[in-house]
């Protein structure tokens, strides 16, 4: 799949939906961790693996720790 913003956003929202952690009104500025989607470390690893699986790379694997969907989108925009 491409790394177009809409595709990446779909991957993230599908993942959060699958683990029943999609916050109401989820958007590019919603925190992925505390006070947001509340991802724990294992769920973050799953998101990282899912992004790599679907889009061929992911920000976590190169040591980045994006805090929001917007930061994930920025990673792919700059890739």
């Amino acid at each position: 799949m491409s790394t177009a913003p809409a595709d990446v956003q779909k991957t993230v929202t599908d993942f959060l939906t699958s683990i029943e952690k999609l916050p109401e009104g989820f958007g590019t500025d919603t925190p992925l961790y505390a006070d947001g989607a509340e991802l724990d470390s294992l769920e973050t690893a799953e998101l990282s693996a899912t992004l790599e699986d679907v889009h061929g790379s992911d920000p976590y694997s190169i040591g980045e720790m994006p805090q929001t969907l917007g930061e994930i989108l920025a990673f792919y925009a700059g890739a």
Binding site: L42, A45, E46, S48, A49, T50, E52, D53
Partner: peptide, 8 residues
């Protein structure tokens, strides 16, 4: 490497 794939 492999556990990431298994997690997905």
């Amino acid at each position: 490497l492999v556990s990431r794939r298994m997690l997905a």
